[in-house]
Design a protein around this nucleic acid. Structure first.
Lengths: 131, 131
DNA sequence: TAACTGTTATACTATATATATAACAGTTAT
DNA sequence: ATAACTGTTATATATATAGTATAACAGTTA
């Protein structure tokens, strides 16, 4: 687990935590079935509060990224991450839309934009992957 | 001006306002030189507070989308919107990165993702455009 | 028994969002 | 000149979110 929290960031700590765990999964650094630290352990390691970690874990659980067993602890969903449904695709479009509009106004072309997205996809890997 | 505010949205009102004005420019519905309502006028029309409008205007001004003359009122930047610099491109990448990672985990392919971006670009127009 | 697990509850601080007034200085139209 | 505008600034208040600090509960594991 390589988590880096920036206390000066505009993003809340629990959001940074969520994003970095998702990024670890996307980069195949963490795989389905792998365990995550307990809320107390991770909070202590990062020097933050247990509730902040718990909030991130709860949201990851709700999105199906992790399972939380009272006994076995926290585990990346062994069944794999649930596939995007129509609702997720709509929310993705809602988030992307203002980014595209602003970029367009600032002269960023469709080509440059999609090339950037491709570059970001390229930084992820599915080698020996789970999907 | 077709502004629609959703008080139930997770996005703050001033952000919704900002995004919709930027979207209007991107769709070529509003062009450089066009005037915008005064803070009091727009606030009254939308049924919100003058300071909320002012906050949106100040941020749009800081990004170069609009100019605010004490006398002439508020105008979409007649020189056109400033082109994206390296700093903007970096911030765009920082915002896009977690979206790509999450989408990837949920099985959205690079192709589907870029196709969505292309669709959003396609909804904008540069006919008779200013850039 | 002791040390851990997730979970829940309460309380407190700080910041962000939004509103409500009020006032100031400068235009513009009557 | 007066009245009606303009953006701007200041102050105050209410609410929600973010983060922390403790404490406790029920269950597991060594």
């Amino acid at each position: 687990m390589f988590i880096n929290i920036d206390l000066q960031s505009d993003d809340p700590i629990y959001t940074q935590l969520k994003n970095q765990i998702i990024a670890s999964i996307a980069r195949n650094e963490m795989r389905p079935g792998d365990g995550l630290p307990s809320v107390r352990r991770l909070a202590a390691d990062l020097g933050i509060n247990l509730h902040t970690v718990n909030k991130a874990y709860q949201q990851l659980k709700q999105q199906g990224f992790i399972l939380i067993h009272r006994q076995k602890g926290v585990v990346i969903n062994p069944e794999g991450i649930p596939a995007a449904d129509e609702q997720y695709r709509e929310s993705l479009e809602r988030v992307l839309s203002p980014l595209v509009a602003e970029s367009f106004c600032k002269g960023i072309t469709e080509k440059e934009f999609t090339t950037l997205c491709q570059k970001l996809f390229g930084q992820l890997t599915n080698e020996g992957g789970w999907r």
